[in-house]
Design a protein around this nucleic acid. Sequence first.
DNA 1: CAACCCTTGTTGACACTGTCAAGATAGGCT
DNA 2: AGCCTATCTTGACAGTGTCAACAAGGGTTG
Lengths: 238, 238
Amino acid sequence: MSRSTPKSRIPVSSRNAAGAGRTAKLGPAAAGRYHHGNLRAELVSAAIKIVDRRGPDGLTIRLVAEQAGVSHNAPYHHFRDKGAILEAASISCINAMVDSLRRRLHRTRGNALDQLICMGVEFVRFAMEHPAEFRLIHRPELRNPRGGCCGDAPTSPVEAAWSNARQLLMEAVRRGQQDGIIRCGDPDMIVLAWWCLVNGFANKVLNFFDDKRCTNAPDPLVSAHALLEHLVNGIRNK
Amino acid sequence: MSRSTPKSRIPVSSRNAAGAGRTAKLGPAAAGRYHHGNLRAELVSAAIKIVDRRGPDGLTIRLVAEQAGVSHNAPYHHFRDKGAILEAASISCINAMVDSLRRRLHRTRGNALDQLICMGVEFVRFAMEHPAEFRLIHRPELRNPRGGCCGDAPTSPVEAAWSNARQLLMEAVRRGQQDGIIRCGDPDMIVLAWWCLVNGFANKVLNFFDDKRCTNAPDPLVSAHALLEHLVNGIRNK
DNA sequence: CAACCCTTGTTGACACTGTCAAGATAGGCT
DNA sequence: AGCCTATCTTGACAGTGTCAACAAGGGTTG
């Protein structure tokens, strides 16, 4: 009930992500001006900074505003509510994560299986290097309005950002199947297994994972590699 | 870091003499009696009820107190702060989850591999039937004071509750290895893979999982079964 | 039995949060 | 010029977690 305010006070123009095709100057951020010029983007980056420092739960609209140097209500002209800020920050983080996966993919010389392993390790590394952001992008309260589902209908922006990651993996799996090194079958299922394994492991590393760190596997990335080899052995064409 | 309130007010009686001439209005609530008798347990169950109804974020100390029929500050005599209530509720939920895993295990006739599959499906089922509780028990902000690590030192109560689940799985894996149906190797690693897969899948089902539900796999439990068979094929002794 | 004290409950208060309402300002439009 | 609208401001309010002080009652001790 606490977040049931459909009354949008946001001007329609600012709903379009990243005001494209504007003739405004938006040169240097211009600190002392009444109209900020690029506040929305700055709020998002401020939010990410705060999440990094104090965790997703430590994020406060008023803190974000303060960090951006505006009054505590200025954000409401760019985001409907706190959830919308979280959502925008999440999308930014998801994109960063997908980018790092993609870069890793392009740097990997081996076959599709090697690529799957490398991307998995990269995913875990991202989680370890940006734990707060990793937790942020997995928050269930992010809007995912279960709306357009089957037919590529308009999904939520968060959903769209995630689908980029899925696409990267799907392509790798399909490529592996075409090359004959990954056995046939629903690629969706393989991606799903990859995703669950990697994601579950990253979560575990961030949450309750003292035991592995203490006994024999000093580096979670090594464990991640082993786990992924496990998976890869299962889908390899024999 | 964010929740560092070492100032415990719990057992410290507020021994202040002060004005003895006041007469307070007699117990407004509390079902008649001033001293509840079993408030702590009732607070925990009230908290779980609220989490079920409004999600972990919807839980409020004042709501918990109201649901239990006491004043908004009564919980502070049983829990240090809100986090402690969450923690107690989590432990209760984790125990419930472990119990259902154990029951499922005892009802399974097959070998260790079958048991691992059945427990995995059961885990996903628990997540689907109690999504709020499932999310609750995975909250990273639950106390896990990274303290006693290697030598079975006193860990957090939450950690202890989780370790029961791990023990169930470890036993199954070891049994399978003794029976020769699970290949040799670090059982820890196998449990880890099982855990990551099942946990990641359950998370995915609860969060962003419209696609599978719409295309070809109507029931997530079927997908879970397929995934677990995948895993089991990887660890089977050949 | 009375005196006492500790645990458990109560009310009151405070700072902080998300959000609404209404006023102020600036840049672009007619 | 004068106005329009998006943007930013101050002000207010209900909820929240938590601290402080006070009250009731059961148990312990004389």
